[in-house]
Design a protein around this nucleic acid. Structure first.
Length: 517
RNA sequence: GCCGCCAUCGUCUAGUGGUUAGGACAUAUGAUUCUCAAUCAUAAAACCUGGGUUCAAUUCCCAGUGGCGGUACCA
C-alpha cells in the first residue's frame, strides 16, 4: 500500500472536551497522517446514549483548528464515507450483527440486566456465564416473537489463543478463555464500542488505528470480528498513557491537565504545546534529534515515525512545558510575537468558544479576561509603544497571560503599592521617601533635558547612594519600586526611555506621597 | 484475584554485548548584573532486584518486584 493511501481517524465521544491527554492522541494521528501524506478523518463515537452530549462535534473541530489540526473528512465537511457519526449508522451495525449471527459468530442473548447483576454479586470476578450461547433455534425464535429484549453477543472461541501484531508493542498473545462474550448490539440497538469501531474502521478504509493502550488487551475482540467478517485487519498502534505528575493514574484535570483551549488562553503557543506533547512517548532518532528539543510542528511532521514511539508511560511535567513555551516565545521574534499577542488577546482570551460551554472556565481565565479587556485597547492605541514595552518583557515571561501584569506600569496612570513592594530591610519608608525626593531633581536634570545616557544615569544614582552612604542596590531598588510599583522589573533606564520622563516623574511623586502617608 | 503490557538521573528521553552511559527540564553553585529574567560556565544526579547465556551484560533470556491498563448493554 502506498503511503498516500493511509487513512487514520480520531474517534472521540462528543463530549465537546479536548484535554491534555486526548490532545496528544489527536496529535499522534495528525503527525502520522501528515508525515505520510495520508488522510485524517474525524468520526464521532456517540453510542452511549446515557452520556450523549449535544453539539460537541463543533467544539472539537474548533478546538483542534486552534492548534492548526484540520481533518480531511469529518461530520461537518463530509468526505465520501458518510455518515461520520455512529448514531446515524445504526442500520449498518444491525446488518453486520445479523451477518455474524448467521455465521454462528454471534448470538442473541436474552439475559436481563438483573440476572447479570446477580451473577456479578455472586462472584465479583466472574464474566458472563454464556447462558444464552447455545439456545436452540426454536428458543431464540420464541423469545424474539415474544418481543423479549435482547442483545447480540459475540461467540468468542472458548479455547485457543488470539495473536495479533501491534506496531508499537509487537506480537501480543491473549488466551481466548480470558475473553468475554462481548455484547455487540445493546438492547437499545446501539452498538458497543468494540463492534462499531471494527465496522466503521473497515467501511471507512482506515489503515492505522491509533488508540490508547487501554485497548491493547481487548484487541482480540476486534481481531475476532475482523476475521469472522472476512475483513483485513488494520495496523494497530496502541499508545502509552500520559500519567499524572506523581505517576499515579492517567493525567486528570485535578492534577494538572488543562483543556486544550485553556492552554492557548493562558498564552501557551500551539507549537509549544504540541512540541511538548509529541516528546512524551516519542523521540526522534539520536542522530537527527536537536539538542535543545525545540521543534516546530513542521519539523515534527518531517521527523515523525511510529517506530520511534516508546512503550512506557510518561508523566506530565509542567516545568518542561513551561520551558518549551518560553523558548518558542523567544524564538518567535518581536514582530511576529506582537502580532500573535494581539491575536491571542482578541481571538483567544476575549472570544468565547463553543468548547467553553462544555468546560467550566477557571478563576484565572475570568481574571485574565478582565485584565485583557482593560489593557487591550491601550495596547492597540499605540502599537510602537506596545512593541517597545513587549520587547523588555517577553523574555521574562513563560506564557502570555503574564503580560497584562508584566506591562502594567507602562500603561497605568497611577501606581499603587503595598508594604511588600518596598525593600525596607536597610532603610525605613521615611528614609526612602527622603531619598526619592532628593534624587528627583537630579533625574529631572538628565531626563528632563533629554541628555541622558547610560553613564549619566548610573552616575546620578550611584553618586547619590554614595552621598547617602547607601548600598547602590538599595537606591536602585527604591527607584524601581517607585517607578514600576514592584521589586522586580526590566532594567530601569530602558523602561524610562519608553515610559517617558513625565510619567516617571509622576510615579515618583506618587510614591513619595504614599510612603509618607 | 486473573490477564496483558512496561521498567536508563527526581522528570522526559538518547544509546550500547566492551562507552568517562549522552541530551533536555527541574535542582545547586559561580560568572554577568541596578532587581528579576535571559545568557554562559560548573556541579550533583540513572541503567529495579536476583539468576542464567557470554571472555564480557545496562544491553540477550528467565524469574521476582514495582508501575500502568483490562477484566461493563463506557468508550
Amino acid at each position: 500500500m502506498k503511503e498516500e493511501d493511509f487513512r487514520v481517524r480520531a474517534a472521540p465521544s462528543p463530549t465537546g472536551r479536548v484535554h491534555t491527554g486526548n490532545l496528544r492522541t489527536f496529535l499522534n494521528n495528525f503527525l502520522f497522517a501528515k508525515s505520510t501524506n495520508g488522510k485524517y478523518i474525524l468520526r464521532i463515537e456517540d453510542t452511549d446514549q446515557k452520556r450523549k452530549v449535544e453539539g460537541g462535534i463543533e467544539a472539537i473541530v474548533e478546538t483542534l483548528g486552534l492548534y492548526n489540526i484540520e481533518f480531511d473528512e469529518s461530520p461537518l465537511k463530509g468526505g465520501g464515507y458518510e455518515p461520520y457519526i455512529q448514531s446515524q449508522r445504526l442500520d449498518i451495525y444491525k446488518k453486520y450483527a445479523q451477518q455474524l449471527v448467521e455465521k454462528d459468530c454471534a448470538y442473541y442473548c436474552f439475559c436481563t440486566q438483573e440476572r447479570l447483576q446477580s451473577l456479578r454479586e455472586q462472584d465479583e470476578r466472574s464474566t458472563y456465564d454464556r447462558h444464552c450461547r447455545d439456545l436452540n433455534e426454536e428458543e431464540v425464535k420464541n423469545n424474539l416473537d415474544e418481543k423479549k429484549p435482547y442483545v447480540v453477543r459475540m461467540k468468542f472461541p472458548l479455547d485457543g489463543v488470539t495473536e495479533f501484531r501491534d506496531e508499537i508493542y509487537g506480537t501480543i498473545k491473549v488466551k481466548n478463555s480470558e475473553v468475554d462474550d462481548q455484547v455487540l448490539l445493546k438492547t437499545d440497538e446501539y452498538p458497543t464500542y468494540h463492534f462499531a469501531v471494527v465496522v466503521d474502521d473497515h467501511l471507512m478504509d482506515i489503515t492505522h488505528v491509533f488508540r490508547g493502550r487501554e485497548y491493547l488487551s481487548q484487541t482480540p475482540k476486534n481481531v475476532f470480528l475482523y476475521d469472522s467478517l472476512g475483513w483485513e485487519r488494520p495496523k494497530w498502534v496502541h499508545t502509552p498513557h500520559l500519567l499524572n505528575p506523581d505517576g499515579v493514574g492517567k493525567l486528570s484535570k485535578r492534577k494538572g491537565a488543562m483543556s486544550a483551549v485553556s492552554y492557548l488562553r493562558k498564552g501557551y503557543l500551539p507549537d509549544a504545546v504540541l512540541n511538548y506533547l509529541a516528546l512524551c512517548g516519542w523521540a526522534p532518532k539520536g542522530d537527527v534529534a536537536k539538542q535543545d528539543e525545540i521543534y516546530t510542528v513542521q519539523e515534527l511532521i518531517e521527523l515523525f515515525s511510529i517506530d520511534r514511539m516508546k512503550k512506557s508511560n510518561a508523566r506530565y511535567d509542567e516545568n518542561k512545558l513551561n520551558h518549551m513555551n518560553s523558548k518558542h516565545v523567544r524564538n518567535m521574534g518581536l514582530e511576529k510575537l506582537t502580532e500573535y499577542v494581539f491575536h491571542w488577546a482578541e481571538n483567544l482570551v476575549l472570544k468565547n468558544f463553543i468548547a467553553d460551554e462544555y468546560d467550566e472556565s477557571e478563576d484565572w481565565e475570568k481574571e485574565l479576561k478582565q485584565d485583557v479587556k482593560k489593557y487591550l485597547p491601550l495596547w492597540k492605541e499605540n502599537e510602537e509603544y506596545f512593541k517597545k514595552a513587549l520587547n523588555l518583557e517577553f523574555e521574562r515571561i513563560t506564557y502570555l497571560a503574564e503580560l497584562p501584569k508584566a506591562l502594567d506600569f507602562f500603561y497605568k496612570k497611577e501606581l499603587t503599592w503595598s508594604d511588600e513592594d518596598w525593600n525596607t530591610k536597610n532603610h525605613s519608608k521615611k528614609e526612602i521617601a527622603d531619598a526619592l525626593e532628593n534624587i528627583l531633581p537630579k533625574l529631572e536634570n538628565i531626563f528632563g533635558n533629554e541628555e541622558y545616557s547610560h553613564e549619566k544615569w548610573e552616575e546620578v544614582v550611584r553618586g547619590y547612594a554614595d552621598e547617602l552612604d547607601w548600598k547602590h542596590g538599595d537606591l536602585f531598588l527604591a527607584v524601581r519600586s517607585a517607578t514600576t510599583g514592584r521589586l522586580k522589573s526590566p532594567p530601569l533606564l530602558e523602561s524610562f526611555e519608553i515610559m517617558g520622563w513625565e510619567k516617571v516623574k509622576t510615579f515618583l511623586k506618587q510614591a513619595i506621597n504614599w510612603l509618607r502617608s
